[in-house]
Amino acid sequence: MIIHAAHISKYFAVEGGMYKRRTGLVRALEDVSFSVRESSTLGIVGESGSGKTTLAKIVARLIAPSKGTVEFDLARINNFRKDVQIIFQNPYASLDPKMRIKEALYEPLLIHRLAAPRQLRDKALELLDIVEMGEDALVRFPAEFSGGQRQRICIARALATQPKCIILDEPLSSLDLTIQLKLLELLLRVKEKFRLTYLFISHNLSVIKYMADFVIVLQEGRIVEQGGMHELFSHPSHPYTASLLRSARR
């Protein structure tokens, strides 16, 4: 097991009134525990408000849990920011609008000292090649690309640090179905080639079916069911899972 999450809870305080007193508590996540096997894809399913994005950010160590821990296999993941990467939902906000693509790709290489200054350009071209984009992309700004292309660039950036694990938080939401399929095919190829572990979050059950080996179903911050993808989809044991599958099949 490369990732082990134990009893994760996350609460957000609701501040109100003149003195910003705590008037309430939003329980985004409540006692969530799961494990991820190396080189597998864990799918996290839930509707909006289920806490999926909060969970993604906690695993990515962008926010801290209120309770519980996420442990990583230290033998495989020893430099967290290098070995674990995240790809966000909104391709229009994930790239710094003032940085050219080449700078965006050089940055992780420079931070982790993965290439000498002379080799930066070649490495960046390699990364663009993996995501099937040409070298003319280097000098451009994010605004010149479509949503699907920007996500490819984000994938290239994530691969720059040669990670072992990638967290994907609804990476396909605002894209056309045909582009979604192309990106998923790319993600599978990349996973195969670099033997990555994926944590794939989505509200779209067909996408989860396409990508995931194991699935967790979240409802209002709690896990209601988890298991292998095929068993869960053919014989769901929790009523919520069953209703999700029913509406998806209509």
């Binding site: 950010k57 990515a60 962008l62 906000a93 609008p97 931070i111 984000c154 640090t161």
Partner: peptide
């Protein structure tokens, strides 16, 4: 914004 979180995620100081 996400691109700042992305920068954190790749390990920027």
């Amino acid at each position: 914004r996400e691109f700042i979180q992305a920068a954190k995620a790749i390990g920027a100081s």
